[in-house]
Amino acid sequence: MKARSTAQATTAIWLGLVIGALLMLFPIYWIAATAVRPRTEIFDAVISLVPAHVTWENFIYLWRRQPLLAWMTNSLFIAIVGVFITVFANLLCGYTFAKFKFPGRNILFFAILGALMIPIQVILVPEFLITAWLGLLNTPWGVILPRAAEAFGIFMVRQFMVSIPDELLEAARLDGAGEFHIFTRIVLPLSRPIIAVLVIFTFMWRWNDFAWPLVVLTDHEQYTLPLGLNLLRGEVNPEWGQVMALALIGLAPMLIIFLLFQRYLVQGIASTGLK
């Protein structure tokens, strides 16, 4: 009796989840459906759920009209280099806050948490002035460096590293290992789950950044995919098929990253102990 009702409940839950999942997927399906629709169908007053004709013209025009390859390369470069710098700096910094006692530690930690709360629009112009002064405008570094410090990552790393046993580090110190050596040889290998979490989130943020690159990158050839999307969307007469085609292109790499790492994501977050 009881087993049967549990089975029924499971089926109901499962059905609910699947319906919810279909709803979640629909906008993404709609991006794809619009991207392959011929221009003449897009503004029809009566909308067919499935495009009557499938065309690749939107992708082809996009390719011919815009420096698509440059946008993709820029996005990839910014995201990959950004991930390396941010994840490494976060690990080093989070480790320090978790495992060292030093004067000013709490003040510095709260200052960093304070940085998490600064809305970008507030500091957009001063930050732009500094970036301009450093000569970084219109370069990928002008996007990477100002965004390289991520308070959220430091916070997560600290949570995770608190649980690394002190004895392990002390033993290495007694063996005469240098601090940096301890960090790279002992701490990092233990931190794989949190590294996976940081990689996913940082990649996602850098890949999708908008407000900041919008002011730093003005040269079309230097644009990233979201800037390209904004350009197409804001045009006097947007070509919606092409807009959606570009949105779809921007989505694909994130999907791959996510499918590759999603297994570690839950584990990684679980491993921070969430305290």
């Binding site: 732009f128 919008l214 002011v215 904004n230 350009l231 969307r233 045009e235 006097v236």
Partner: peptide
């Protein structure tokens, strides 16, 4: 090329400030 006038002004103004 900017998408529209508003975006162009925002960009020009910010760059003028810098």
């Amino acid at each position: 090329v900017n998408g529209n006038a508003m975006q162009a002004y925002q960009q020009v103004d910010t760059r003028l400030a810098g």
